[in-house]
Amino acid sequence: MAVFAVVHGGGGSAWEWHLVAADLAGRGHDVVAVDLPVEDPGAGLSEFAGTVADALGARARRRDRAGAELVVVGHSLGAFTAALLCGRVEADLLVLVAGMVPAPGEAAQEWWEASGYQAYLREHGAAAEAASGSEAEVFTHDVPPGLAAEALRRSRDQSARSMEEPWGLVAWPPVPTRALLCRDDRFFPAEFMRRLVRERLGIAADEMGGGHMPMLARPAELAERLDGYARSLAGPARVRT
């Protein structure tokens, strides 16, 4: 059994993880998902990480988890919060799902150019066209219509401070890390993500099918991946440490 702390992406909510959370709970895991205060103009990345840490409570301390491993999962922009959280809690594994891998001192608003994302889009017209479509075309094109509509209805504005505040660690946290990209992601194309993960984490990304929101489009497959990551903690894994 593991404790999963799952962190939603920009403008999202904990609801996006409800299908994956139910599947993981059925496999015997404990899942903590919270709404980050993304609309609060006074909240930045530090407050986001604090919100998740508060929700974890005693489960953030290894001695209080009765042998359970703590797996922190960050989706998209949530990678900034998830990695920062791993600098505060005793995590056993960090998993980035279509994650914006931050660099020390980098603000989220700087990531787009600093990561090479904008340059990639300029060089690849098709990818640029796909990334500039409507929210439904870019983010939820493979999500069942009812879930896609609910996800868009629940979307929230992202505070400026959270985009402007530099990522607060001087180095990547000393936690084994896995990066999972989605091969049909229209927002973060797979080719770009493979390069980003290799350059910033020094590992090869794992891959699955589907678009940018696998927790809604392919929840059972994503849950199986996360369950496998948790179970692999007892054995060898390809990780960044």
Score class of each variant (00 low, 15 high):
71 V>K: 01
149 A>M: 06
112 W>R: 11
27 R>P: 00
65 R>L: 01
211 G>C: 04
33 A>P: 00
191 E>Q: 10
108 A>R: 07
173 P>M: 07
127 A>E: 09
208 M>A: 10
143 V>Q: 12
11 G>T: 13
9 G>C: 05
76 S>D: 13
218 R>Q: 15
137 E>D: 15
54 D>C: 02
211 G>F: 12
144 P>Y: 08
165 E>F: 04
236 P>H: 10
48 F>R: 09
78 G>Y: 03
146 G>R: 14
158 Q>Y: 06
72 V>D: 05
114 A>S: 08
4 F>V: 05
91 A>M: 03
4 F>N: 06
163 M>Y: 11
226 L>Q: 01
147 L>D: 15
15 W>V: 11
69 E>R: 14
16 E>H: 10
158 Q>C: 08
146 G>Q: 14
239 V>A: 07
89 V>Y: 09
55 A>E: 12
169 L>R: 05
128 A>K: 10
181 L>F: 10
124 H>D: 15
175 V>L: 06
19 L>S: 06
3 V>S: 01
136 A>D: 14
39 E>C: 00
108 A>H: 12
185 D>Y: 11
187 F>C: 02
6 V>G: 05
189 P>W: 09
240 R>C: 01
147 L>V: 11
124 H>L: 11
11 G>K: 06
46 S>W: 03
163 M>G: 11
45 L>G: 07
171 A>R: 15
202 G>C: 04
170 V>C: 07
112 W>A: 15
210 G>T: 14
120 Y>T: 03
66 A>K: 05
199 E>Q: 07
177 T>R: 03
27 R>Q: 14
149 A>H: 03
75 H>E: 12
8 H>K: 10
68 A>M: 05
122 R>A: 03
8 H>C: 10
202 G>Q: 03
97 V>T: 03
129 E>K: 07
33 A>H: 02
219 P>A: 09
30 D>T: 15
100 M>T: 09
194 R>G: 03
68 A>T: 09
134 S>C: 06
118 Q>N: 06
51 T>K: 05
156 R>H: 11
171 A>K: 02
92 D>Q: 07
21 A>M: 02
156 R>N: 14
43 A>Y: 07
149 A>E: 15
107 A>S: 15
112 W>S: 13
168 G>T: 08
173 P>L: 09
106 E>V: 00
199 E>F: 01
221 E>K: 00
29 H>M: 03
141 H>K: 06
227 D>A: 14
112 W>K: 01
143 V>W: 07
209 G>N: 02
150 E>S: 00
163 M>E: 14
235 G>W: 13
1 M>V: 04
181 L>K: 03
193 M>H: 08
107 A>N: 10
167 W>Q: 10
55 A>Y: 10
178 R>E: 14
137 E>H: 01
149 A>G: 01
111 W>T: 09
90 E>C: 05
35 D>V: 10
17 W>S: 05
87 G>T: 06
36 L>Y: 07
93 L>A: 07
180 L>M: 09
185 D>F: 07
59 R>K: 13
131 A>P: 00
63 R>G: 08
31 V>D: 12
53 A>G: 04
118 Q>T: 11
74 G>I: 06
69 E>L: 08
231 R>L: 14
52 V>G: 05
187 F>Q: 12
17 W>T: 08
